[in-house]
Design a protein around this nucleic acid. Structure first.
Length: 165
DNA sequence: CGCGCGATTGTA
DNA sequence: ACAATCGCGCGT
């Protein structure tokens, strides 16, 4: 299956979040279809970790196509994909993944099931042999958009996207 | 340095 | 509705 390259990730984070629906996530021997995403954009989004620069959010300020993994609530990890050009901090949170046997809904569950931790932060998904994304079975997915989950700021932005089956 | 809290989830 | 659980980051 064709791997998503730098030109796919180097676009506005909201477009990437929509277009990631239906794409395939490959992590080791596990493959899953992305069913739910959220966009976070440092420049104009108070809810984003990259609204201001911190050591944790620094990866979001880098070039696109890298993993951003953070630890939250003392027990969960969340997987994000960095988008847009360098110094345009943004990332897509992966909230839903359909595996052959299970549908994982929730970013914490996805990382727990796949075994993704902060050790996987900052991986180049365009070149890594173990961790990357490819085109999916579904190439033109229609979607529903809602407000993002679990945040208190910027709740007016409809930047959560769910695939329509 | 200390301390409150979070892009969550399972349980009541 | 709330506890679990701890590293980050803001404020001092």
């Amino acid at each position: 299956m064709l791997r998503l390259d730098n030109s796919f990730y180097n676009r506005h984070v909201v477009d990437v979040a929509k277009n990631l629906l239906g794409k395939t996530l490959v992590f080791g021997k596990v493959k899953g279809i992305i069913t739910e995403t959220e966009a976070y954009r440092g420049a104009d989004d108070e809810a984003s970790h990259a609204f201001s620069w911190t050591p944790r959010s620094s990866i979001m300020f880098g070039p696109p196509g890298y993993s951003y993994i953070y630890f939250i609530y003392g027990m969960y990890h969340c997987l994000n994909i960095v988008t847009e050009e360098k110094n345009s901090p943004s990332a897509v949170l992966i909230r839903g993944l359909k595996l052959p046997d299970i549908h994982l809904n929730g970013p914490g569950k996805i990382c727990k099931y796949l075994g993704i931790t902060r050790e996987h932060n900052g991986i180049n998904l365009v070149t890594d042999n173990n961790f990357y994304l490819t085109e999916g079975i579904i190439n033109s997915a229609t979607y529903t958009s809602t407000a993002r989950i679990g945040i208190k700021k910027a709740i007016d932005k409809q930047w959560r996207f769910l695939i329509n089956f």
